[in-house]
């Protein structure tokens, strides 16, 4: 699979279509994000599979936003999985990236990763390399739903109480692009308190993930306290699906139903 990606990137770079390819590199025994430019050694490229598939993923779209801001005239290619692709569509919709300046290089996720992520669409819209895996079966949300109310409450409170308020979840989140963050506002979230006010802190973030969370799961991977954040945001996503038939990032340009006020004003 990586050879196909390498050839594609080489072709894109040589044709001058792109200024650089934002992907991953294996260097000094670690996998890290890297911007490949013309003349760079593509043999060190990695797809984020260290020991098991997809265990070294990064919020590449987040870095892409910064790149695009610094070099607004340039076009960049970016390595995308199914989740990153949903992220790109959503970032286009939110005017954080210009689709004319982004060339997605799509890879599929293997079945084991799709199952582990319970991913609804483990492949991007345009696939450069790889075979489509079956969607993973959702389990985590159902497992919490199966608990009785009092058990649910203590389950979540026992998880939330571990929070060290490191902001890892929002720092890694490719969909967290607000200039001002509610969770960093001292009037709303008091500084110097550990854990933060629970469950309000985590519920606030969950509410802000409505129509934004693309279910990439990086938050849960980044969390040093292993709080099952993904399950929380999966629930948010499933409510959006049930109530509004809306899946974040599924259709380009499709706005969150909570932005309907724009439609009412005829701005669309």
């Amino acid at each position: 699979m990586i050879d196909v990606i390498r050839d594609k990137v080489k072709e894109l770079l040589d044709s001058g279509e792109i200024k650089g390819f934002l992907g991953l590199v294996r260097k000094n025994g670690h996998i890290a994000p890297h911007l490949f430019q013309q003349g760079d050694d593509l043999s060190l490229m990695s797809l984020g599979d260290d020991k098991v598939a997809g265990d070294a993923r990064y919020p590449l779209n987040k870095f892409l936003i910064n790149l695009a801001k610094a070099y607004p005239e340039e076009t960049f290619a970016v390595l995308v999985r199914g989740c990153d692709d949903r992220g790109l569509q959503t970032l286009y919709t939110w005017n954080q990236l210009n689709p004319k300046k982004v060339v997605p290089v799509g890879i599929t996720c293997p079945q084991e990763l799709a199952d582990a992520c319970e991913c609804a669409k483990p492949f991007p819209a345009v696939i450069t390399a790889g075979e489509c895996a079956q969607p993973g079966t959702p389990r985590s949300v159902a497992a919490v739903d199966a608990l009785v109310m009092s058990e649910r409450f203590s389950y979540w409170m026992d998880e939330f109480v571990k929070c060290i308020k490191c902001y890892g979840c929002s720092n890694v989140c490719p969909m967290c692009f607000c200039n001002e963050c509610t969770l960093k506002c001292n009037d709303l979230v008091k500084g110097g308190e550990l854990p933060p006010e629970i469950p309000v802190f985590h519920h606030t973030r969950a509410m802000h993930m409505v129509g934004r969370c693309i279910d990439c799961g990086l938050c849960e991977e980044a969390c040093p306290s292993n709080i099952p954040l993904r399950t929380l945001y999966k629930k948010v996503g499933s409510i959006m699906e049930e109530q509004f038939d809306f899946t974040t990032g599924a259709v380009r340009g499709q706005r969150s139903p909570l932005n309907k006020i724009d439609f009412a004003e005829g701005r669309k």
Partner: peptide, 9 residues
């Protein structure tokens, strides 16, 4: 979400 978190709606 409240129900999911075990808080009475």
């Amino acid at each position: 979400m409240l129900k999911f978190s075990g808080i009475d709606e």
